[in-house]
């Protein structure tokens, strides 16, 4: 492998990794505090992307405004899901909530299909040519992607570790019963959690939609690698989610000269299994105590 190929693959891995990492970030929050793998995450992201498309359809071409709409819609959707379903399942087994989230994922996807139809939509964003540096293609849009992903991560980190509501979230994550007895309004904390999750889903859905095309199955398709990144990053670690997403993306792309392009998507699961066999709690699993 020559240097140019190596760096190209590395950069491609970074792009894919950041997209996956954002989805993993949304998974990770719920994983840590509400304690289940939220299978509906991908489909909530899809709804966000369609919200952005709808705003574009109104003639508003500002990506920032489109993203704002995606964020608001996803926040609202998450709170509705919490109020209608997840709150009623508090105290039930992880499996019960997981199964409910699969059901919700199906319902949301079916609704998107019925409302928006199967045809693809795209965000009309002017394309920029890559800058060629010694055979390495530098994509200007990558900068925006990185700023968005790390910005999102920083916001989530700040909310979790620097604000009173974040402190309460972590308390609930550590021990819900104890948190309740020490006077924390768990319901309010959970609403805050779902609002934050929704915001991340909105951003993640928009980022995915801008980089690819918007279709009803978009979010669902990215769910499995995002799951791998979320587990690998370790529950409750926003930095871990992004870093694990990056790591998986980079490993995946760098592996292609050796394993080819069809096996690369199996690689994130192989990596997941190997690492969990060695460290059952994930890479950053010890960063925040969960149980």
């Amino acid at each position: 492998m020559n240097a140019a190929l190596f760096f190209n693959l590395l950069l491609n891995g970074v792009i894919e990794g950041l997209i996956i990492g954002l989805a993993a970030l949304a998974l990770n929050l719920v994983f840590a505090v509400a304690r289940f793998p939220n299978t509906a995450t991908g489909d909530i992201m899809t709804v966000g992307a369609y919200a952005g498309i709808a705003v574009q359809g109104l003639g508003i071409s500002s990506t920032v405004l489109q993203m704002l709409a995606a964020v608001v819609v996803c926040m609202a959707l998450c709170v509705v899901l919490y109020r209608l379903v997840f709150r009623r399942l508090q105290g039930r087994s992880m499996l019960a909530v997981l199964l409910a989230s699969i059901g919700l994922a199906f319902i949301i996807r079916a609704a998107v299909f019925l409302i928006a139809g199967p045809e693809q939509r795209v965000f009309q964003i002017p394309l920029q040519r890559a800058i060629d540096i010694g055979g390495v293609a530098l994509q200007p849009s990558m900068l925006w992607l990185a700023v968005t992903a790390f910005g999102c991560m920083a916001v989530v980190f700040a909310v979790l570790f620097l604000t009173p509501i974040g402190r309460r979230m972590r308390a609930v994550a550590d021990n819900r019963a104890l948190a309740r007895t020490s006077g924390i309004d768990v319901d309010r904390v959970m609403v805050a959690l779902w609002l934050l999750t929704g915001a991340v889903c909105g951003v993640a859905g928009m980022v995915l939609g801008i980089n690819t095309v918007v279709m009803p199955e978009n979010g669902w398709n990215i769910l499995l690698p995002a799951f791998a990144a979320a587990v690998l990053g370790g529950v409750g670690s926003p930095v871990g989610a992004i870093v694990a997403g990056l790591a998986l993306g980079i490993v995946q792309e760098l592996s292609t000269p050796f394993v080819g392009f069809t096996y690369k998507i199996a690689l994130s699961f192989v990596a997941l299994i190997v690492i969990l066999a060695i460290r059952p709690r994930g890479l950053f699993g010890a960063a925040v105590k969960v149980r």
Binding site: V85, R88, L89, R92, A96, V97, L99, A100, I102, G103, L104, A105, F106, I107, R109, A110, A111, F113, L114, P118
Partner: peptide, 21 residues
């Protein structure tokens, strides 16, 4: 007609959610 696949998916999803709840 064409909505049938989505409706099937929604029914299965709804079954999951309602039974769990």
């Amino acid at each position: 007609d064409t909505e049938m696949a989505s409706i099937r998916l929604a029914i299965i999803g709804l079954c999951l959610v309602l039974f769990v709840l």
